[in-house]
């Protein structure tokens, strides 16, 4: 046996094939929609050449006003819910990671995890029942409130993970060098936590933007976000303008996840000497 056939204990035949299958399953549907959104044909399944007509249709067609309003709602809700959830989550992470041992710590972690552990449909039912029984009018505000609640843990996890990676000696060093507690936070801890806070915000933002089930329950009449608008349209069949819209949202998500990936990478390259 030559060098080429050296026994490698890590290698399993077929695992690379499975990986290709996995990626194919994950990406094939998305690629197909991306390609067909540029299809010139009226019959959406027959290829009729490259065209941007459905994108034009999306922005100027009869349904464009509805989608623009939905996009505006989605983006403003995601932005506001993302910011508020990130603020709460940052404070919570400092309390949990730097608060020492206190009574109710495990309980607090359980509370933060509820939105992740409970099935979305149950959260949706609970929120609907609660809002109707205390008389909160269903609409933009109720969606925003619900999104803040379930975005908190998604913002919390990357922030807490980042904070756990920062030894407390950095804050001690700052205080040792005459920084007040606030200055130690402002000049040392916060800049060091920044990548985690940013990832937390991006995750919360995208989770809010993507949410369908909860929003669908509590949106009330007349208020739509992009997912509920798309769902409503798809019920009548997949039209090409929906594919164009889906492609745009797909690309937007990829931009956000790439951003988040780059933040994580630049940061880890800094941490290792």
């Amino acid at each position: 046996m030559g060098q080429k056939h050296r026994f490698n204990v890590r290698h399993y035949t077929g695992f690379s094939f499975m990986t290709i299958v996995c990626l194919l399953i994950l990406y094939l549907p998305l690629l197909v929609v991306l390609v067909y959104s540029f299809n010139d044909s009226l019959s959406i399944t027959r290829w009729g050449g490259f065209s941007l007509r459905w994108y034009t249709e999306l922005f100027t067609g009869v349904e464009s006003a509805k989608f623009k309003q939905a996009a505006f709602n989605s983006l403003t809700i995601a932005l506001s819910a993302g910011v508020v959830a990130t603020l709460f989550a940052t404070a919570a992470a400092i309390g949990m990671v730097r608060g020492g041992h206190f009574r109710g710590k495990t309980l607090s972690f359980g509370l933060i995890s509820i939105p992740i552990m409970v099935p979305e449909i149950v959260t949706a039912v609970a929120t609907l029942i609660f809002f109707t029984s205390i008389g909160i009018k269903l609409g933009y505000a109720s969606i925003l409130l619900a999104h803040i609640v379930f975005c908190i843990p998604f913002a919390y996890l990357p922030i807490a993970a980042r904070l756990q990676g920062i030894e407390s000696s950095f804050e001690e060093a700052a205080q040792d060098l005459y920084a007040s507690r606030w200055q130690a936070f402002r000049y040392v801890l916060m800049p060091m936590m920044a990548p985690g806070i940013l990832s937390g915000f991006l995750l919360a933002f995208i989770i809010s933007l993507d949410d369908f089930i909860i929003t669908n329950f509590i949106k009330g009449a007349g208020v739509e976000t992009l997912p509920t608008a798309i769902f409503g349209a798809v019920k009548q069949g997949i039209k090409p303008n929906i594919m164009a819209l889906s492609t745009l949202m797909l690309l937007f998500s990829i931009v956000i996840v790439t951003l988040s990936y780059l933040i994580g990478r630049s940061d880890s390259s800094k941490a290792t000497h």
Partner: peptide
């Protein structure tokens, strides 16, 4: 990527 969009893509 939005789960709704992924499901619609699969349907297509």
């Amino acid at each position: 990527v939005n789960l709704l969009i992924r499901t619609v893509s699969m349907k297509f």
